[in-house]
Amino acid sequence: MADKKRTGLSALADAGADSDDFSIIEAIGGPRGVVESMLPGVVFVVLFVATNNLNLTIAVSAVLALIQVLARLVQRQSLMGALSGLVAVGICLIWAWKSHEARNYYMLGFLTNAVYAVLLSVSLAVRVPGLGLVVEFIRQMPTDRFAAWFHDWMDDRELKRAYMVITSLWTCLFALRLLVQVPLYMTDHVAALGVARLLMGIPFWALAIWVSYLIIATPMHRHTNTYRRDGDAAERQQEHE
């Protein structure tokens, strides 16, 4: 495995490797990644509740997001995560600023959760687990022979079943966020909404990745070993021919 651990769903793509060093902290971005992900939301809700000044809250949150990116730039670290976070925070702040409503800071999150929930629900309905597509695509990008790549993991009943289970799990996660947070948005409970967003953000994300890893690790490991044995057998056969 590479020295630099992959994060998010990419970490699940390594579940079938001959390794027991899976780390949930590293999978969610490490301590720094967790802080950088949660800090803008914490600052926004705390500052707005304390001052009730939306413009000041937006300005401070925007400066904080820029500082995070500049810090990575100065330290010559990867900027992709920080830049993607900056774009997301920027959209949220602009949405709140243009609408003059603090609660609209969370609108982008509602939309993304709704889109993910719908897409995963559709994938479950057609019996092609969305999480399986994503994880297998990360594991082995099908630059050619797409049909062979697709059937390789879809025809493995145990692996497909595991992917169906974790796809259901993530669908429930996105739906639960909406069920809890949308009523708070509709009733304009910004403080409660901010707390709910924080609690159902990184902690739920970490739990979903950990449980998903536990579910798919064994069938993926077995599938990977079977694939290797079949490949070795094919190579030996070609050598004898």
Rank of each mutant, 00 (worst) to 15 (best):
K4C: 06
L9T: 12
L9P: 06
L9W: 06
S10V: 07
A11Y: 05
A15N: 10
D20N: 15
I24R: 00
I25N: 11
I25Q: 10
G29I: 00
R32P: 00
G33M: 05
V34N: 10
E36A: 02
S37I: 03
M38I: 15
P40V: 09
P40L: 04
G41R: 04
V42L: 14
V43Q: 11
L47H: 12
L47W: 11
F48G: 04
N53D: 15
L56R: 09
T57N: 11
I58C: 03
I58Q: 01
I58P: 03
V60N: 10
V60M: 05
L64C: 08
A71V: 13
R72V: 03
L73P: 02
S78D: 15
G81W: 00
L86V: 00
G90S: 07
C92R: 02
W95L: 13
H100N: 15
N104S: 11
N104D: 15
Y105V: 01
G109V: 00
A114F: 05
A114H: 05
V115M: 15
Y116K: 01
A117L: 02
R127P: 01
V128E: 09
P129N: 00
G130H: 00
L131P: 03
G132E: 07
L133A: 12
V134L: 12
V135R: 00
R139W: 02
Q140W: 03
M141G: 04
P142H: 03
A147L: 10
W149Y: 12
H151E: 13
W153R: 00
M154R: 10
R161Q: 09
A162L: 04
Y163G: 02
M164C: 08
T167Y: 01
L173H: 05
L178I: 08
L179S: 11
L179I: 09
Q181K: 07
V182G: 03
L184R: 09
L184K: 07
Y185L: 05
G194P: 04
G194M: 03
A196P: 11
A208E: 07
W210D: 01
V211T: 08
L214Q: 14
L214P: 08
I215E: 06
I215G: 03
A217K: 15
P219S: 01
M220A: 10
R222F: 01
R222A: 07
T224G: 08
R228Y: 12
R229G: 04
D232R: 09
A233Q: 07
A233T: 06
A234S: 08
A234T: 11
Q238V: 06
